[in-house]
Write a protein that binds this DNA or RNA. Structure first.
Lengths: 161, 161
DNA sequence: GTGCGTGCAAAGTATTTGCATGATG
DNA sequence: CATCATGCAAATACTTTGCACGCAC
């Protein structure tokens, strides 16, 4: 176990940065200014960003940086287990920090994303996996529908048509 | 409710084709040979196909067909609610017939996909959605891990390294 | 110094769009 | 016969790769 579970799930930014540096060293890779800057900045975030958003933000900190470095570093971060890549709806990759297990509720109208956790669902997932002999490593659960605001708006809209 | 739920979930191919034609008429669109051929052929399938696989298969039936027609028709089928688009792992779109609600267990080594249903999980999803005021329309749940064969192979492999 | 990392540009994928022609209601 | 659909090619969006130079170990 190269990176302690306790750090991977919910460690502070500093711990995560250390864990990432350690991961890099273990692989015989090199610690660079760009990798540090992206990682340090990203670990502070909450939410889901695509590659372009990350690139535009990180360019403020690290002006000369290239798009490929962002992709390569995000891939490294995913390999380290500290960050996860997601694909909601369309095929664009969104990155988020791995914290505790959590899943997503996504509004199909306004795109709002609510995160939630449910231990009973997790337990049932494990039992389903056992039933098929699968050894689980991760999961994704996405609930799609209308958020309270959009649902209300949709109901009001119904009276017009 | 333009298309009856009973047809959308688990109707026969013929019922689905009728439902699709009706959907097209409702939208003021036109019924064409290509749309019928793609729909009729696709409704008979089970499993998950990408656009390229669909294109290559449908070309056997409908030689002159274009890639764009496949994409446009699959999008129409998704709009009709009879087919669903999925993105497992990477960002490629996979299409599948909507049957009963079911979810997926995916082997991260060999790519095997097992489908399953679990009413208790569905019920919990509904209660989570209520908690946040969401009105659910659909969901995706994917469990990632090693299938029995790959898990066994991985265990044996461990003794070598 | 060696080898990996970087930034750029170019190449790859997967998907969408513009347009002239053809088919449908 | 007006409108929508088709097939092609070009365009787009997102991501990866090749390469020359630079930096970390």
């Amino acid at each position: 176990m190269p990176i302690a579970e306790s750090i991977r799930f919910g460690g502070s930014e500093g711990q995560k940065l250390d864990a990432f540096r350690e991961f890099i060293k273990e692989r015989g890779l090199k610690s660079t200014r760009q990798r540090d800057e992206i990682a340090q900045w990203f670990f502070r975030l909450r939410g889901h960003l695509n590659a372009d958003e990350i690139y535009r933000e990180i360019k403020e900190i690290s002006p000369g940086i290239g798009f490929s470095t962002v992709y390569r570093t995000m891939k490294l971060l995913c390999d380290s287990g500290l960050v996860q890549e997601r694909h909601f709806g369309d095929g664009e990759a969104l990155y988020e920090n791995v914290s505790a297990h959590h899943d997503h509720c996504i509004c199909t109208l306004c795109g709002k994303i609510v995160e939630f956790e449910n231990d009973r669902i997790e337990a049932l997932q494990e039992s389903v996996a056992q039933e098929y002999g699968f050894r689980l490593t991760s999961h994704k659960m996405e609930l799609y529908g209308l958020c309270p605001e959009c649902a209300k708006r949709a109901d009001q809209g119904l009276t017009e048509s």
